[in-house]
C-alpha cells in the first residue's frame, strides 16, 4: 500500500471532477439518446414510447443498405490498411536505425497531425476532373479527356485507408519493436523459411498490436464523416451522414437517435468480437495505442 495514497478528502476532490465528466458528458447524454430513440411523435408536443424508429430502419431499404455498406467498407478499409501498413511498420521497427528511422516516423506523423480537412483538400486537388491526376493522365495520353476521379467507391476507399494508416502503423510498430531479433535469427538458423517465421513467430507476437490497430481503424472508419462526404459527394451513402441528416437537416431527433444507437451497437459489437477473438482485454489494448 502506498504511503501517499490520497486520504478521504483528497480522494473525494479527485473523484468529483472525474465523476462529473463521465456522468454529464458521457453516460447521461447516451441515456438521453437511448430514450429519444424509443419514442414516437404522436401529436404536437406529444410522444409515446415505441419501437417505430427502429422499425423504420428495417422497413426502409435505403437505411439498412447504407448501414451494411458502411460496415462492409469499413472492414475492407481495415484489411487494406493492415496489409499496406505491415511492411512499413516492419521496416521502421526492425530495419531502419537512427536518422532514417526518425525521418520515417516524421513522415508518417506529419500527414496525421495536419488536419483531416487539409488532407481532404489535397485529395480534392489531386482527383477532381480539373485536378492534378486527371490532367496528368490526359496530358500523357492515357485518357481521351480528363476523367472525374471523385465520387467513386474506390476513391472513398483510398481516402479512408489514407486517413486510417497512422492508427494501424503506431500499434504495429510498438508491437514489432518488442520482438527480440534473436528469436527470428534462431528460427532462421533452425531452417524456418520466411513464411514460417512470419506465421509462427512474428504474427503471434504482434497479435495484440494487430488487434489494437484493426479495432482503432475499424472504429474510426465507421465513424468517419468528412472523408466519405467530401470524396463521395452524393454517392457516399455513409451511415454517419444519415445521422447528420436526421439530426441537423430534418430535425428528426428520434430517428437520428435510433441510427446513432445502431451505429454505436455495431461499433461496440465488432470491438468486442475483435477483442474476444484475439483474447485481449479492452483496457490493455486501448492503453497500447
Amino acid at each position: 500500500m502506498n504511503v501517499l495514497a490520497p486520504r478521504r478528502l483528497g480522494l473525494f476532490l479527485l473523484l468529483a471532477p472525474a465523476v462529473l465528466w463521465l456522468a454529464l458528458l458521457i453516460l447521461l447524454p447516451h441515456v438521453e439518446v437511448g430514450l429519444l430513440s424509443l419514442r414516437e411523435r404522436v401529436g404536437p408536443g406529444e410522444f409515446a414510447t415505441s419501437f417505430k424508429q427502429y422499425l423504420t430502419f428495417f422497413d426502409e431499404p435505403l437505411y439498412w443498405h447504407t448501414f451494411v455498406r458502411t460496415a462492409l467498407m469499413s472492414v475492407i478499409v481495415t484489411v487494406l490498411a493492415l496489409l499496406l501498413a505491415f511492411p512499413v511498420a516492419w521496416s521502421i521497427a526492425k530495419v531502419a536505425r537512427g536518422r532514417v528511422r526518425a525521418m520515417l516516423m516524421a513522415g508518417i506523423l506529419l500527414p496525421f497531425w495536419a488536419s483531416e480537412l487539409v488532407r481532404m483538400l489535397g485529395w480534392l486537388i489531386l482527383l477532381r476532373g480539373s485536378g492534378v491526376i486527371p490532367q496528368l493522365l490526359f496530358w500523357l495520353g492515357f485518357t481521351a479527356e480528363p476523367v472525374e476521379l471523385l465520387y467513386h467507391d474506390a476513391t472513398i476507399l483510398v481516402g479512408l485507408v489514407y486517413s486510417s494508416l497512422l492508427f494501424m502503423l503506431v500499434p504495429l510498430i510498438n508491437a514489432l519493436e518488442t520482438l527480440d531479433d534473436s528469436l527470428i535469427e534462431a528460427a532462421y538458423d533452425l531452417g524456418g523459411n520466411r513464411l514460417d517465421i512470419l506465421r509462427r513467430i512474428v504474427v503471434p507476437h504482434a497479435a495484440p498490436g494487430i488487434a489494437a490497430g484493426c479495432i482503432m481503424v475499424f472504429m474510426l472508419t465507421l465513424g468517419n464523416y468528412l472523408t466519405p462526404v467530401i470524396l463521395g459527394g452524393k454517392n457516399s451513402m455513409w451511415f454517419t451522414e444519415q445521422i447528420y441528416t436526421q439530426f441537423i437537416t430534418r430535425f428528426n431527433w428520434e430517428q437520428g437517435s435510433a441510427f446513432a444507437f445502431l451505429l454505436l451497437g455495431l461499433s461496440s459489437l465488432l470491438v468486442w468480437l475483435g477483442l474476444k477473438l484475439t483474447g485481449q482485454r479492452f483496457a490493455d489494448s486501448m492503453r497500447r495505442t
Binding site: A18, L22, L24, L25, I26, L27, L28, P29, H30, E32, V33, L36, M219, L222, G223, Y225, T240, I243, Y244, F247, W253, G256, S257, A260, L263, L264, S267, S268, V271, F282, A283, M286
Partner: peptide, 27 residues
C-alpha cells in the same frame, strides 16, 4: 469500472459524442 468507463469515450464515434451531448444539453 471507473478505469474501463474512462476509456469508453475513445471508442464512441465523434459524430455520436456530438449528437448525444447536443440532445442532452438541449433537453
Amino acid at each position: 469500472l471507473f478505469t474501463t468507463l474512462m476509456l469508453v469515450p475513445l471508442v464512441i464515434p465523434g459524430v455520436i459524442l456530438g449528437i448525444s451531448i447536443l440532445a442532452f444539453a438541449s433537453q
